[in-house]
Design a protein around this nucleic acid. Structure first.
Lengths: 336, 336
DNA sequence: TTTTTTCTCGCAAACGTTTGAAATAAATTA
DNA sequence: TAATTTATTTCAAACGTTTGCGAGAAAAAA
């Protein structure tokens, strides 16, 4: 087993102390230029590489951030990870990824893993199942900065970065109305999620603005392909079927289009559909899906930047949680 | 700053030495049951949590694996990450993710990052740009086990996990021929990538089997949406246009379908298309895409399992690289 | 030459844990 | 009671760094 070369090895070979070597390597003014170059040359020759673990122990920090996320396979989340990794990379941080798979139990385990790994800070978007937040409180109690993104809560004193769900939903529904829709259904996310509430609110208010009656009968819980497809099938078959759909994500929107086609309805002529996310699939579906761009990459960047800012702050005397809202943008395509 | 509670704190409060506390916590037989319970109770009370960093330093291992991957946003890769994380989680390992963004330079930096982070092992799928592998050799020289997946090379003595690209390609093209295609084009990946070669070989041999002439003029380098779309446009306009396409990935296949539609050709009547990956988009496209399932999740699992096996082995006297091939499966849908 | 200042460098402790060996206390045997 | 074994605990070193402080040597000032 080839041991890694350490500062001791260099010190020994040069007849110096480890302190001197350590100082020489980081250009400490106390060290003569002669020994400095000698040390550096030998270090380069031997391929010395500081042992981060030892550094970690001494500094009690790991330059690592933990990421707890529901499902990597969702385009939106992978875009977010992309943004996070980008910023982390630029600031010489590493990212540890933990998936909750939308499971509360697993999320709690992840939270512990993040703690034992002694990450410097945590980014989290919690699972759909989660409505108790005490595991995150534990992070905060341990003085680990936490930034929530996308799936957030007001129940915790923590920073948040979210898409402008309300505005996005509002614009989407407004767009449907302007395109002539009279009866618009909303496929919603669970209402204990902030995004569920906000998008419903945007839907509601856009209707209101145009004096269209809001009815709970047109709001359905359907945020997966299967449920959306099934639900769309059912309601599109009824006599008084909607002529417009605002879905809480692209997957559901695509499912709606599929269901409509299967029932012989034309999109966008008979039924107009708008999604939320602007995933790759949205551009590939037929017709191409009108959707609200959530700017996942931006969101990830911002969340990570916010966390790094907190880490730089350190000792936060009086903590004031910040809530950052990332603009959304309606991308109009052929489904409306 | 609330310091984490350490073994010392417990020792002090109980009037014991740290050694005793350490041993008590891990049920060492030397410790009397009285002190053992006392220690454990106090530990639980204070919320003691062993400092992983100290452990790492002592054991010179981090229970962390590094993952170097081109782009998280690709469905295939995120599926792989999913599989990796699954296995890592079950074995109490954490995963550090580094994206190369298909850049050789960035990949080299990632390799260094992985080294300084002292991960126990590395999983890598290298970038399209990479054809010099000395940075990976550095990992091997440092006795860090490496497993390559998907994008692999024979130039390094390392384990590999790949999809059965040859077989998948063969089946795909065979399928096209059986469906009546006479003139089949192949949109290929760069030929310095093993997957590029293997899939081309599968294409070649399937033609051969049916006594169809293989021509280099029907093989194009096109593995992104844009290049595939452009290329498809060009060749579909020519008089002797292909009636079948085998694309190296789903994105390209979807681009081909799009181009065909734009030129007024019907899929699958006039042109048949088969992709490779079985991404979500494949199921959403219209017509739904026939494609080769690469089982990314399985592949990720296997790669991680193989790495963990190597880690358990430790001291490998005579290292014999293993190459594991994950079966692929043709998923027939409406594009053929 | 003596005193003071400036340059270089080494000592030792610290970060939190584990572990072989030594030490003490208790129990057993002679 | 003395000698021996056994049970329990502590000591100290180690993992690889950093860093406050002190020390010796050389240079400058007196």
């Amino acid at each position: 087993m080839k041991r890694q070369v350490t500062i001791k090895d260099i010190a020994y070979k040069l007849g110096l102390s480890t302190s001197t070597v350590s100082r020489a390597l980081k250009d400490h003014p106390d060290i003569s230029s002669k020994t400095r170059t000698a040390v550096k040359e030998l270090a380069a020759l031997l391929g010395y590489r500081p042992n981060r673990i030892a550094l970690n122990l001494r500094s009690n920090s790991t330059r690592t951030i933990g990421l707890i996320i529901p499902e990597i396979e969702h385009y939106f989340f992978s875009a977010i990870i992309n943004g996070i990794e980008e910023i982390a990379y630029k600031n010489d941080y590493s990212v540890m990824v933990f998936q909750s798979n939308e499971s509360y139990k697993r999320e709690v385990i992840n939270t512990n893993a993040v703690l034992t790994n002694r990450v410097d800070g945590v980014l989290v978007s919690f699972s759909k199942e989660t409505n108790d937040f005490s595991h995150f409180q534990k992070l905060i109690d341990n003085e680990i900065p936490v930034v929530f993104f996308d799936r957030t809560t007001e129940d915790l004193p923590a920073d948040q970065v979210v898409a402008d769900d309300y505005q996005g939903a509002f614009q989407a529904v407004n767009h449907l109305i302007e395109k002539g829709c009279k009866r618009i259904a909303h496929f919603a996310a669970p209402q204990h999620l902030q995004i569920g509430k906000s998008r419903l609110a945007g839907y509601h208010d856009a209707l209101l603005k145009h004096n269209i009656h809001f009815s709970h009968e047109l709001v359905f819980l359907a945020d997966t392909f299967e449920t959306a497809r099934k639900t769309a099938h059912e309601i599109l078959r009824k006599p008084n079927a909607p002529d417009g759909f605002f879905a809480v994500n692209d997957i559901s929107a695509i499912a709606i289009i599929k269901a409509a086609k299967e029932l012989g309805k034309r999109v966008p002529e008979d039924v107009k559909v708008v999604g939320f996310e602007n995933s790759k699939s949205a551009a590939f579906s037929d017709p191409e899906l009108t959707t609200v761009d959530q700017f996942g990459f931006e969101l990830g960047r911002e969340a990570c930047l916010m966390l790094l800012r907190r880490l730089k702050e350190g000792e936060n005397t009086d903590f004031q949680p910040v809530r950052k809202i990332i603009r959304t943008k309606l991308v109009v395509r052929n489904s409306t």
